[in-house]
């Protein structure tokens, strides 16, 4: 059975969706990714959708699900590379992606993940630190 490959890149997992997925394939990606987060103890997931020509309600729901499930598993998700025409269409469709963080491209996605992780770290630190990190919000 065909699968969307999931690559490990340092502490992140990287998924590049390069084909027009049918619904079952999207569901298996959801399952594979949760398994991989647990197996690799990844702290962040980057999903590159720059090849996707459309995001319909099914794919939108899959992205929402991945973001919520990874959160429960202590990993953060960022969706990168959404095409402008896709963004316009999604809004008109009424797709609510409130739970999903997005970035314009892979570099900014990695930056966003890292800054979100720093923020989590500083929030979980009980004692205020004396170095310059303490001013970071």
């Amino acid at each position: 059975m065909e699968r969307i490959p999931i690559l490990k890149m340092g502490k992140f997992l990287l998924v590049t969706i390069q084909i027009d997925m049918h619904d079952r394939l999207a569901l298996s990606l959801q399952d594979d990714l949760t398994e991989m987060i647990v197996k690799t103890q990844a702290k962040g997931v980057l999903i590159d959708i720059s090849s996707l020509e459309i995001v319909d309600s099914f794919i939108g729901r899959m992205l929402n699900n991945i973001a919520s499930m990874s959160k429960v598993l202590d990993a953060l998700t960022v969706v990168v590379g959404m095409r402008p025409a896709v963004a316009i269409t999604m809004v008109e469709l009424g797709l609510d992606m409130k739970g999903v963080k997005t970035a314009l491209d892979m570099d900014r996605g990695i930056e966003l993940l890292e800054s979100m992780m720093d923020q989590e770290d500083s929030e979980s630190a009980q004692e205020p630190e004396s170095d310059n990190d303490s001013t970071k919000e």
Partner: peptide, 8 residues
Amino acid sequence: VDQTKLIT
């Protein structure tokens, strides 16, 4: 954009 809307 119209293509994308129609396909969606």
